[in-house]
Amino acid sequence: MSITKNQYVKYALIVLLSIGLILFTQEIKLIKNPESTPVTSMTYLGLAFLWLFSMVGIAVSDLSKKVPIKIIQDFPVLGWVSISSLIFCLTSDLFIEAIRAVDFLSITTPILTYAGISVADRLTDLRKTSWKIAIVAMFVFTGTYIGSALLAQMGFMFSGK
């Protein structure tokens, strides 16, 4: 399934909305706490790069669907965007400096706002689950997290870091 030109325009606008929200959040953070990351011309440049790399990632993800290897086809667009951005950032420090002028936590608040809205209609699905699953879910989430953390901690101990 390849992405049509119309969809690219739509995605471009939504990513634009997303970086607009980030800028707004960073400004609000500054009103609340003047000590937080300032909005400078580098911030604007950083936001532009974030927009650009997101679009590059979408295009790469689109192309990857044509590769006849399942693991590549299944790799999420989120991952492709990180990889695309990583490659650009390895070529020049300007990308890194500009993007790091965008406050990290300001990126997260608007995303979780939309995440909250997106699940609004699924709250009723909770009736389909049970308290038993809730308990299991907590153990499952804790299990994967503690499992990985323990192994990583051991790894650091063995390597003497």
Binding site: I14, W51, S54, G57, L78, S82, I107, T108, I111, Y114
Partner: peptide, 9 residues
């Protein structure tokens, strides 16, 4: 799509 700039960061 809204999450993409985060992943780029």
């Amino acid at each position: 799509i809204i999450m993409l700039p985060l992943m780029a960061r």
